[in-house]
Design a protein around this nucleic acid. Structure first.
Lengths: 211, 211
DNA sequence: TAGATTGTTAATCGATTAACAATC
DNA sequence: TAGATTGTTAATCGATTAACAATC
């Protein structure tokens, strides 16, 4: 199977399929796109098309071998390939992410957190060490850290971003409510609470208007 | 200006414009879509089209009155209209959200958190009280809570969701990594870390393949 | 008047959905 | 063979981008 590009929309749904399949893998050996679609509330053609982008082992009348499909999904998502990451900003959100169980199953290995607050340095959170920001550049180079997660307040995000880029990071997952100015060969994924809330509250406002 | 529907893609960008405008409102009185587009790294036609969905007060050659535009954006986003909300799950993520400054500016008023852990009950986090889940239904009805934010582990999310619906909530912001089964007159916004991470790590894998 | 800027109409692009052929 | 299911090809839908007319 060639490395044809998988669309972003599809990629976002792949973890959903994976979670679902894992929740039923004990019980059955084969599963159809129809069943998956129904369970997740998606269109069955969409599911089939999504699965076709990672697998070509579906069999008419039978469906997909569930273990094989799980492995193909994990492969496509890069879960078998570990990426070292660090978090900058050991506030509440940073610590919440440090303790997030799901990440290790996804190949994301968060090695440590960094914070400008000297008093936090030396402490541990969810078993992960917290260092001062000064130690960041050397740490990143030594450990071949590829992903930087930014959970500092908006006003410090750009500075931290520059520091990460300087330290040779390849991708940034940004939780600060700021658009980062960044070389375009670096990958950025913005996690934008304000955008999500905007969608939620305009839907709600519309609903209240109609009622 | 009629209540023509604003597209989801546009709505997600509106908070971006709002933040940017607020950061420059002190300095100038009028601003052009061209300037905004350049500052945010967006296409200028896109900005103009987005702004057209909330404003019709742009003037050729001059641009938009910045204060008026801010107010129109806030209006469209419902920031002037307060929505009472609660958080279920006073773990790290829940507490991080409780302390998030940005929400009050967006009309989201988080009144309290609820947790099944009895020992957390009675405590305060970021000035907000934590109660036991038993108190949830009465609280929601008394305070006319419209939005429920779910930050419990995946396995408890559906139970909490049912409880919230039962208590008369209208919209759910779900941070648990689970697809919720929910009456379709209730609004749901899923905040899906796994999807975001999937996009990030597949981009990174592609980049490493090419390099 | 000339030129910058708005806002609209048409063209392109991408993703979803529908129709259908292939196959176990 | 018949029918369920896959996977592909075409149609639809929505969002972005490009072209252009309107206007201060």
């Amino acid at each position: 199977m060639a490395h044809h590009e998988i669309s972003v929309a599809t990629i976002q749904r792949l973890p959903l399929y994976l979670d679902y399949l894992k929740s039923v893998e004990k019980d059955i050996e084969f599963i159809s796109a129809t069943t998956i679609a129904f369970s997740l509330g998606l269109g069955e053609v969409q599911v089939r098309k999504d699965l076709a982008s990672v697998s070509s082992s579906g069999k008419p009348k039978i469906g997909y071998n569930i273990h094989e499909l799980i492995s193909q999904l994990e492969d496509a998502l890069g879960y078998h390939h570990v990426n070292n990451a660090i978090i900058v900003g050991a506030g509440k959100l940073g610590c919440a992410l440090l303790g997030y169980e799901g990440f290790c199953r996804s190949g994301l290995e968060i090695l440590a957190a960094f914070d400008s607050d000297q008093t936090k340095a030396g402490q541990y959170e969810s078993g992960k060490p917290i260092y001062t920001v000064d130690a960041l550049p050397d740490f990143c180079r030594d450990k071949e850290v590829r992903i930087g997660i930014i959970t500092v307040p908006g006003e410090h995000a750009q500075k931290v971003c520059d520091l990460l880029v300087e330290a040779g990071i390849l991708a940034i997952w940004n939780f600060a409510p700021v658009r980062l100015d960044i070389p375009k060969n670096i990958i950025v994924k913005n996690e934008n609470m304000a955008s999500s809330l905007a969608v939620l509250s305009t839907s709600l406002a519309k609903k209240l208007r109609e009622a």
